[in-house]
Amino acid sequence: MFFRTALLVLRKDVAIELRSYEIVSTTVFFALSCVAILSFAFVNEGQAPEGTAAGILWIAIAFSGTLALGRTFERERYGETLKALLLAPAPRPAIYLGKMLGIVALMLATEIVLVPMVNFLFAASLFARPGLLVVILLLGTVGYASVGTLFAAMLVRARTRDVMLPILLYPITVPVIIAGVRGTSALIASPVDDAVAQLWISLLAFFDVVFVTLALWTFEPLMTE
C-alpha cells in the first residue's frame, strides 16, 4: 500500500511531465547556462584549472535542482492539486516519497545531459570509474532531493517561497555539495583515488539515510495546517 501510493504519485508526476517536457527542458538549459557562466569565471587561456569540472558540475546540479523543485511545486500550487493529494486517504510519508522520487528522476534526467557536457567542455576524465560516478551522482541527488522536496512542499503556502527555498536548502545540504565535489574530484584525478571516493560515498550514504528518515518523520506534522 505504502509503496504503491508512492509509485502512483511518481507515475502521476512523470505522466504530467511527459506531456509537455516543460520542467526537464527548462532545467537542462538552465544547468547548461550555469556551466557557461561558471566557465567564464574559471577558464583562463582556454583551460580550466584542475578539478574545476567537479565543482562546476555540482553547482549546476544544485542550482538546477532548486529550479526543478520550485517548478514542480508551483505546478501543484497552481492547480491546487497538492491540497487534493494531501486530502487523499493515503499515508502522508508515501506522498512525500512519491514526490521525492519524481524530483530525483527530474534531476537525474538533467544529469544525463549535464555530465557528458561538462566532461566534454572541460576535458575531464569523468568516466574513468563509471560505476563510482553513478553511485556518487545517485546518492548526492537523493540527499539533495530528500531535503529539497520537504522544504519545497512546506514552502508552498509561503508567499516568499522563491527566495526562501535556496536560503533554507543550500546551508542544510552543504555536506552533500562538499561530498559530491570532493568525491567527483577524486574520480577525475589521475591516478584515480578510489579510497577517497569511497570515503565520500560513505558520508553521502549516511547523510541520505539520516535525512530521508527525518523527512519522512516530519512531513506529516509539517503539512498539517
Binding site: 520537504l150 512546506m154 503556502r157 509561503a158 516568499t160 536560503i167 533554507l168 509539517l222
Partner: peptide, 15 residues
Amino acid sequence: VRRFGGPGAEKLAAA
C-alpha cells in the same frame, strides 16, 4: 523564514 514566511511560518522555522 519565521519573519517572512507568512502564515504558519513557525512550523517552517521548526523544520
